[in-house]
Write a protein that binds this DNA or RNA. Structure first.
Lengths: 153, 153
DNA sequence: TTAATAATTTATAATAATTCTAAATTTAGA
DNA sequence: TCTAAATTTAGAATTATTATAAATTATTAA
């Protein structure tokens, strides 16, 4: 589904800024911070204000297009709400990976009379890659860092 | 167990500030923000710096005495690590309640090869009290607010 | 179409949580 | 006690986010 259609079907007026942000979100889908979104759009020489990114994002969260999730760091991170899933933060390599929600059904839980509908959070531990002995996750992460630094030049 | 014993057994040098913070934590146990801790100690005319509260808390987290948990707001909140439990944030009344961890055993989960050891996060939904029809939770919360405002005078 | 109105964007200022810094104080070990 | 290391501290700096108010853009009514 295209950005404009998604906006319309959620009763959101179309503006170029909203389309730009949503376009970017749809290609990346998850684990995005506000300045990642801002920087990526600004990098393409597209004019957008940081304040607008904040505005658009909180509008999207309000309308249910985005979900604000907790992160091990202090910044807020956002996911496009495609399907319910959990996050796994590896304490060895620092990678964030997804875990399918099929591992347990939240809505079926009855937590001492409380009826849960959503879950915000993440698991920590050692990831798949690190458990294999070779810390692939760490290597990948280092590589990503280097690419990032290189791109800044 | 007394504060000084806990500090010793965790290999932490004893200082009056660390004891003050831990004493307070042991009476309250959970859902504490840094400024709550700071304000409570300062209220008793005990001299302590905000920077020290930050220092002490991050030391405690490092040593495993405290756990940093996610909260629906932006501030970091902390729990004394007595036993593993989950948090439930009610979207109707705004109350935070505890949910026993006996509902599922994290360490037994194998999340796509990732080995979880900890879980940071919370569930949202409607709480026990609100589900009973009478929004006891909301009433309680309003009451707490009023007490808080009264205490500020 | 035009005038008026509402919605949106924007730069900048303000706020709030947290971290940093470097000096002062306290504590621990010889 | 003396010295070195650890800790505390006030205040500055940083960072993410929100607020403000003016400027721009879009929408509606005449």
């Amino acid at each position: 589904m295209k950005a404009t259609e998604i906006l319309k079907s959620n009763g959101i007026n179309i503006t170029s800024q909203r389309v730009k942000v949503l376009d970017y979100l749809l290609t990346k889908k998850q684990h995005l911070t506000v300045d990642q979104i801002y920087a990526s759009i600004a990098d393409k020489n597209e004019i957008i204000s940081l304040a607008t990114v904040y505005n658009v994002i909180s509008l999207f969260v309000e309308k249910g297009i985005l979900k604000r999730i907790s992160s091990p760091e202090d910044k807020a991170i956002f996911d496009v709400t495609l399907e319910n899933h959990f996050h796994f933060y590896c304490t060895k390599c620092g990678s964030i990976s997804d875990v399918s929600s099929s591992f347990f059904d939240i809505s079926a839980l009855d937590l001492m009379g409380n009826k849960p509908d959503l879950f915000f959070g993440y698991f920590t531990g050692t990831c798949n890659e690190c458990n294999k002995g070779v810390k692939k996750g760490k290597l990948l992460n280092l590589l990503r860092q280097k690419v990032k630094i290189f791109n800044r030049r």
